[in-house]
Design a protein around this nucleic acid. Structure first.
Ligand code: FES
Ligand code: FES
Lengths: 133, 133
DNA sequence: CATAATGATACTATAATTGTATCATTTGTC
DNA sequence: GACAAATGATACAATTATAGTATCATTATG
């Protein structure tokens, strides 16, 4: 029952560091060193964040990444969506045979309710919030 | 972000069927047939449920399983715990380097809060409840 | 032009999940 | 008592997801 994968984890940690160097371009090399993470893996992650417009990238010598948004506008759910797909907890697991009443099922309602709650709560956690801790 | 694995899924579905045959001993063969699930896999699952005292088993010809508890006392969280370990969402993923303040961190508080909520909600879903749907 | 960075992408390794196979043991039936 | 049909226990195999590596092309800096 893992809510957050390592992709997301690394991404958040990197984003925090980048946010701390306000405006400075930070290279994967420095980040991997500072966070003690595998460099090629981290690189792949940052590239994905770039594609999704969370980071902005600069090529060439002394290139690297900066945030593409304010830290207060980057939320945990954004990152999770990128690396873990859409955060649906589960489809109804009785749908196949036993249960045909998708509309009125208490389990389904519970799952939906739980999902909403989790997303709402995680949606309040931003990079800026994490930095203030 | 999968909350429920297939183990749990199959287990719940089997438990629902067994519950419907109140008191009757049901064999894996019949269950696998009725639910259209792989028989050896389902068997392993039921054996685990037996070990955990959720099912009672009977050997020999015309053997099989019955519930060891009332359907109203078998909860989703019980099943999840068996197949998915203790349902902890995640440890603090900044703990290694950036963040040493495990006590006062908003992320940590959120995660704990979310975890509590999920468990509380799932803890209200019993086999009996599912049957009434 | 050399160097040091990212972009894109293919590949590999490891771990978790999902499922199978087998042999021993128990019990009802002929 | 022999046989069939069930579970107990356990080892093994296959599949999928996660985690991580490698490589080559491209771009910018000095
Ligand atoms: S169990 Fe099927 S809709 Fe709920
Ligand atoms: S980020 Fe570390 S305790 Fe919260």
């Amino acid at each position: 029952m893992k809510l957050i994968t390592r992709d997301t984890d690394y991404a958040v940690r990197a984003l925090c560091l980048i946010a701390q160097r306000k405006g400075c371009i930070v290279s994967v090399k420095k980040l991997a060193l500072a966070l003690q993470l595998p460099r090629p893996f981290l690189r792949k992650i940052l590239q994905q964040l770039n594609k999704k417009k969370i980071l902005e990238s600069f090529k060439g010598q002394s290139g690297g990444f900066i945030l593409a948004k304010e830290p207060a506008k980057i939320f945990l759910t954004d990152i999770m969506r990128i690396f873990q797909g859409k955060p649906s907890l589960n489809e109804c697991f009785l749908k196949k045979i036993v249960c045909p009443h998708t509309g009125s099922c208490p389990l389904r309602k519970k799952i939906v309710k739980i999902e909403d709650y989790v997303l709402r709560e995680l949606g309040t956690v931003s990079i800026a919030l994490l930095l203030r801790s």
